[in-house]
Amino acid sequence: MSSKVLVVDDTSFVRMMIRHVLMNLGQIDILEATNGIEAVQFYKENKPDLTILDITMPELDGLSALKEIITFDPTAKVIMCSAVVHVFKEASAIGAVDFVAKPFRPDDLKKIIIKHL
């Protein structure tokens, strides 16, 4: 059975790095969004098993997107992935299940993804 993972980051290189980690895990359908508005829309349309969400993005930042996703689905599994580590505590209070600090090592990201899938 495959899992659905939504990757949200405004930087294409970061999305590519995360996609590479996910592809190495096997049966995973990968969805991608480039900002918080797309993230919320894609989440509502696809209800992914896991979302990896950046914090600093145009249109709608990651914390605001996280609030909307958690309001829509309180059981959502969202991993915050950002260089802005001082907001991880706030993200946790909103409902994020885990955090990955940028720049991340692929093996570290892989372990966190496996933990939540």
Rank of each mutant, 00 (worst) to 15 (best):
I70D: 05
S12Q: 13
D29F: 09
K111W: 07
K67P: 00
N24K: 14
V97K: 05
M17Q: 13
N35S: 02
Q41W: 00
E32S: 03
L25W: 12
K110C: 06
A93T: 13
V8C: 08
P58K: 06
V78A: 03
R105T: 09
G95R: 09
R105E: 11
K4M: 10
L22C: 12
P74G: 12
R15L: 03
K89I: 10
G95H: 03
G36N: 00
F13N: 10
V21M: 04
G62P: 10
P48C: 10
L60Y: 11
D49H: 13
P58N: 04
I30G: 03
S64M: 13
H86N: 15
L60W: 03
A65E: 04
L117H: 06
V84D: 09
E68Q: 15
A39H: 02
I70R: 15
D10G: 11
D54N: 07
K4A: 08
E38C: 05
G62T: 11
F72W: 15
V14N: 02
D49R: 13
D9T: 10
P58E: 04
G36R: 00
A96V: 06
V21Y: 05
A65C: 05
A39G: 04
M80N: 01
L60E: 15
D108C: 03
S64K: 12
R15C: 09
V5Q: 12
E45Y: 13
T34P: 00
Y43R: 06
C81P: 00
I52E: 05
S92V: 08
F104V: 11
D98I: 08
S2I: 07
L66Y: 04
I30K: 04
Q41V: 04
P106F: 02
H86I: 06
A39P: 02
K77P: 07
A83F: 07
F42R: 10
I18F: 00
L66W: 05
T34S: 03
H20G: 09
M80G: 01
D54M: 02
A96N: 04
V87I: 14
H20E: 14
V97L: 03
A76Q: 04
D61R: 07
G62C: 08
V5M: 09
A33W: 01
A96C: 06
D98K: 05
T56K: 08
I69D: 11
A83V: 07
V14P: 02
V100T: 04
K111A: 11
I30H: 04
L25H: 10
I94N: 03
D49Q: 12
L66P: 06
Y43M: 14
C81Y: 01
E32C: 05
K4C: 11
P58G: 05
H20C: 06
K44Q: 15
A101Q: 10
S2H: 12
S92L: 06
T11A: 14
G36M: 01
D108N: 08
T34N: 07
A96T: 08
I55H: 05
K115L: 06
V8S: 08
V85S: 15
D10W: 10
F88H: 14
L50I: 09
S92N: 13
R15P: 07
M80E: 00
I18E: 01
K89M: 08
R19I: 04
R105F: 10
M23Q: 15
I113D: 00
I112N: 00
R19F: 05
A93R: 15
F42K: 11
